[in-house]
């Protein structure tokens, strides 16, 4: 367990999801908030899905981080490159498990830390995000994170979504031109 991924920001701790994050994630996957993730689903299906998110770390070497508040330790969401079989490339995703955590900049803070890790530590050039066209908040966050609409990658594998692409500093098409 020595290689557990771990990132920190001012207010957040990001680490590979574990049993402590299970109640919050099962509650999220059982709620209407999880529509884009195949929800709402029964606890059995939710456990399987969450467990597979965790397992992706071993298969790919990267995956979703659980987002926890430094102060209270409570789990508030997940963020990270999601890459199931069938996706042409890893997809930078994020979610907050409950509406009570919205509007505080937590998702942005978490995503910035994850993107920094992908670009600076892992050396990725870019990463895509598939965003539900109906999810204005996620679209706005993608743009604030510096992503732009992407027509270069494989088509979005999910219905009703658009592809956005985040670029490492100096690696956008303009910067490379």
């Amino acid at each position: 367990m020595s290689q557990l991924p771990h990132l920190e920001t001012d207010r957040l701790i990001l680490s590979a999801p574990g049993a402590a994050d299970q109640p919050a994630m099962l509650s999220f996957l059982g709620s209407d908030r999880a529509e884009f993730y195949g929800g709402p689903m029964e606890p059995v299906a939710a456990w399987h899905k969450f467990s597979a998110y965790v397992g992706q770390w071993v298969l790919r070497g990267y995956g979703f981080y659980a987002i926890r508040l430094k102060d209270s330790g409570e789990t508030i969401g997940m963020a990270g490159p999601h890459h199931p079989e069938g996706f042409a490339e890893p997809e930078m995703s994020w979610l907050l498990t409950d509406a009570a955590y919205e509007g505080k900049g937590y998702a942005r803070e978490a995503c910035e830390a994850v993107l920094r890790d992908l670009f600076e530590t892992r050396g990725w050039d870019s990463v895509v995000s598939y965003i539900d066209t109906a999810n204005a908040a996620s679209r706005a966050l993608a743009l604030r994170l510096g992503a732009r609409l992407d027509e270069t990658g494989a088509p979005c594998p999910l219905p009703g979504c658009e592809s956005f692409r985040h670029f490492a500093p100096g690696r956008s098409p303009e910067a490379r031109a």
């Binding site: 590979a16 574990g18 049993a19 299970q22 399987h48 969450f50 467990s51 597979a52 998110y53 965790v54 397992g55 992706q56 770390w57 071993v58 298969l59 199931p84 079989e85 069938g86």
Partner: peptide, 19 residues
């Protein structure tokens, strides 16, 4: 489907971690 089989493998890894 390969995707389902792959997910079973990931599920087993997660099972180790969670259980």
């Amino acid at each position: 489907h390969r995707g389902d089989a792959w997910r079973w493998f990931a599920l087993n890894v997660g099972h180790w971690h969670l259980r």
